[in-house]
Simulated assay, not measured.
Amino acid sequence: MPNTEPMTQRVELATVMDRLAVDGVVTDYAVAVDDGDWEAYRGLFTPDGRADYRSAGGIEGGAGSVAAWLAESLEAFPVRQHLIVNRRVRFGVLERDAGDTALVQADYVSPMGFAAAGGGPAAPGPVSGGRCSFGLLRTEDGWRLREVVVREKWRRSPQGAQAAAGG
């Protein structure tokens, strides 16, 4: 009987490497939004990649138009820290795909802050939470986002934040 252990180990190693790479893309997504690095944000997507922020009061569209909307709408909150946790990763190959696919569902908490006068600590801003779905595709350049769907479940604004934000 042939020994399949080395083959099994290679498949398991490849799966671990894919899981780490996919996790890295999700982390890079959060960091790009937090840092306002919209070029990096756009670079995480496939050419036809889309994002949907409608449940959080935003827009749905291609990565470029969504990046422009995020840049404008997040300008009031220079302090951002997206925490993406409870990541559930599933891999698969779809019939019509050019390569492997991954789906990540993860919960998020997103505290934001207003700029402080005189360079002090940021004034507390709104905090929201929910779940993101990330659809990824393996490309020649590595794993890329094909779709991001944000499903906001809750939002809390500190006293005065609504007034400061014009709400």
Rank of each mutant, 00 (worst) to 15 (best):
L44N: 10
F45K: 06
P78W: 06
G64K: 10
H82N: 04
D48H: 10
L103Q: 05
S65V: 15
A63I: 11
V109K: 03
D97H: 08
A71C: 06
V109R: 04
A68M: 06
V93S: 04
V104Q: 02
R87P: 05
A102H: 08
G64D: 08
D100E: 09
G58V: 01
Q105Y: 14
F45Y: 05
R90T: 15
L94K: 10
R96G: 04
Q81V: 12
V85E: 12
V109S: 00
N86Q: 15
F114G: 00
G64E: 03
A67Q: 03
A63F: 09
R90S: 07
V93F: 07
R80S: 07
G99D: 08
T101S: 08
F91G: 01
R88A: 05
Y108A: 01
R87K: 15
R80H: 03
G99K: 13
V85G: 10
S65M: 12
W69P: 00
T101M: 01
A67S: 07
Y53D: 01
G64R: 12
A98M: 08
N86G: 14
F114C: 01
W69G: 01
V109Y: 00
P47N: 09
R87H: 12
Y53V: 12
G61V: 15
P47M: 13
Q81N: 10
R88V: 15
V104T: 14
H82A: 00
A76W: 09
V79S: 14
F77T: 15
E72R: 12
W69D: 02
R54K: 12
E72K: 12
A98W: 04
A67H: 02
A68R: 14
R54N: 06
L70N: 10
F91C: 02
H82C: 00
G58H: 01
P78F: 07
V109I: 14
A76Y: 14
A63T: 12
R87W: 11
F91W: 06
A71I: 15
R80C: 06
V104M: 08
A68V: 14
A67D: 02
A51D: 07
S110T: 08
D107L: 04
S110I: 05
V93C: 03
Y53M: 07
V93K: 08
D97V: 10
G49K: 05
M112A: 05
H82K: 11
V66S: 02
F114L: 02
A67L: 05
A51I: 10
L74I: 07
P78K: 13
T101L: 04
V85F: 03
R80T: 11
M112G: 00
D100F: 09
R50A: 04
L74F: 09
P111W: 05
I59C: 01
Q81E: 04
D97I: 12
D100H: 13
V89C: 11
W69A: 01
A71M: 09
G62D: 06
Q105T: 15
V66D: 00
A106P: 01
S65E: 12
